[in-house]
Design a protein around this nucleic acid. Structure first.
Length: 405
RNA sequence: GGGUAGGUGCCCGAGUGGUUAAAGGGAACGGACUGUAAAUCCGUCGCCGUAGGCUACGAUGGUUCGAAUCCAUCCCUGCCCA
């Protein structure tokens, strides 16, 4: 089976240029392809992970990935699908973020022996000369056509700056540059990148008189069409400091029944037979599939050891028995004894504020061990930790284990 | 630069001198029901707190017993004109 079919079967593909040609090329040649990542944060998130999975499938099929970090485009900001202008990042931020991205990508893409390359478009974009660029590239872009592009639609209603309007040109230029330097003939991206990708394909055709291709992936959405990978704290990050492996595991453990099969196909390497088998589970049994999903995804992102720990912690917490060592922990120092438990938990961000904590307690939303917490004024004493730890349960699914540091 | 419409809580959005911590909706959170699911129902949803207080409606000043609401200046955004 060709990668193209694999990607299609697993549900990655949204749109493709020249489908038949590309499919044939992917079957008969080793292509160099690229995908761009704009350094808007200091960690990749699940949306990127989805894309990296697709790239990994491609690499496994013998094609060469180029990971382009947007040291240049990041300064401009992609307006696609945005209702407001991105925050301007400083050069230092961008460099820092690019470095963070690089480290994380190495988990999913094999960069050894030149099997994949990491490239920064700042290397050429920052050197561009305005007049030259205008004459050389600008002449090939029709403003009328750009304005009609889907990616600008929303922004035309709410305001679009010239800076952001140029993003498409930068991205098209990147593709052309990669085509010249590395023989890159295929650009991948989220489906929101479609307009930008075809702009590049077209630019290469005009300037280089060569064919090139574009392929976009479906954004990771749930069965209701909403973006997945959002948590109360924002995105579901791949950086364990921003989203712990346990939280990460729990996110997938808790997804809707109707999304299990899709996620297994997109976010794990399990064979499709297995994916379909797990996805067909009904009612309570589908929890088995969710466990597999959570474990597999966590393993890919954080490694097997962390995945096992997360799994163990979840099992211990939800069943009330087993090894609690890996549960989310709050360290208690001697100075904490004698303080109000509520205050300690607020300090540790278990509650957003004392008021929020009080409300939760009043609503019977918090337990200490197996008992509902009723006394808001409770003071933490040494006896509370006499058995080694104290489990605080917030709502149904959030657990915190207090232990003496 | 000129004209004009705006800037309200996580988001959308009502409010145009006191009864407004600010309608309504969404999101989120808790409870019931369950399967660590969905749907549904109930509740909560600025901060501190017993009462009560404090901080908030782009920013800064001002008018007033009292301002999100009135005035001035400034900043930002949309639209039209140049």
């Amino acid at each position: 089976m060709s990668v193209f079919d694999t990607l299609k079967e697993r549900g990655y593909l949204a749109q493709v240029t020249h489908e038949e040609e590309l499919k044939k090329a992917l079957e008969t040649e080793q292509l160099t392809f690229y995908m761009g990542f704009d350094p808007t944060a200091d960690s990749l998130h699940v949306g990127h992970f989805l894309a990296l999975m697709a790239m990994s499938h491609m690499q496994k099929a013998g094609h060469r990935p180029l990971c382009l970090v947007g040291g240049g485009t990041g300064t401009v900001g992609d307006p696609s699908g945005r209702t407001d202008m991105r925050k301007m990042l400083t050069d230092a931020d961008i460099e820092h973020n690019c470095n963070c991205f690089k480290k994380q990508m190495a988990r999913f893409i094999d960069f050894s022996e030149g099997k994949a390359l990491m490239i920064n478009n700042g290397d050429w974009l920052r050197k561009l000369n305005y007049i030259e660029l205008l004459r050389d590239v600008g002449a090939h872009f029709s403003v009328n056509r750009m304005l009609a592009a889907e990616c600008y639609k929303q922004r035309l209603e709410r305001g679009l700056t010239f800076l952001e309007f140029n993003y498409m040109i930068m991205q098209a230029y990147d593709f052309m540059e990669l085509n010249r330097r590395y023989g890159c003939v295929l650009e991948l991206g989220g489906d929101d990148q479609w307009s930008n990708i075809i702009a590049g394909v077209e630019l290469i055709r005009r300037k280089e008189a060569k064919p090139s291709y574009g392929m976009t992936f479906n954004l990771l959405t749930n069965s209701e069409g909403k973006k997945m990978g959002k948590t109360a704290k924002g995105a579901l990050w791949l950086d364990p400091k921003k989203t712990t492996p346990y939280e990460f595991y729990q996110y997938w453990r808790n997804i809707a029944d109707s999304d299990v099969e899709k996620c297994l196909a997109l976010l794990t390497f399990l064979p499709m037979d297995e994916v379909r088998r797990l996805g067909s589970y009904k009612d309570e049994k589908i929890n088995e599939a969710k466990k597999v999903l959570a474990f597999e995804v966590t393993k890919l992102v954080h490694g097997e050891e962390e995945a096992l720990k997360a799994q163990e912690a979840a099992q211990a917490l939800f069943s009330g028995k087993g090894n609690m060592d890996n549960a989310p922990t709050i360290n208690i120092t001697d100075a904490d004894f004698g303080k109000k438990l509520l205050d300690i938990l607020v300090d540790n961000k278990v509650f957003e504020s004392k008021g929020a904590g009080r409300r939760l307690i009043a609503q019977n939303g918090v337990s200490i061990g197996d008992d509902k917490w009723t006394d808001v004024e409770k003071v933490l004493t040494i006896e509370d930790l006499a058995n080694g730890d104290m489990i605080i349960r917030k709502g149904k699914k959030k657990f915190y284990r207090l232990i003496k540091a």
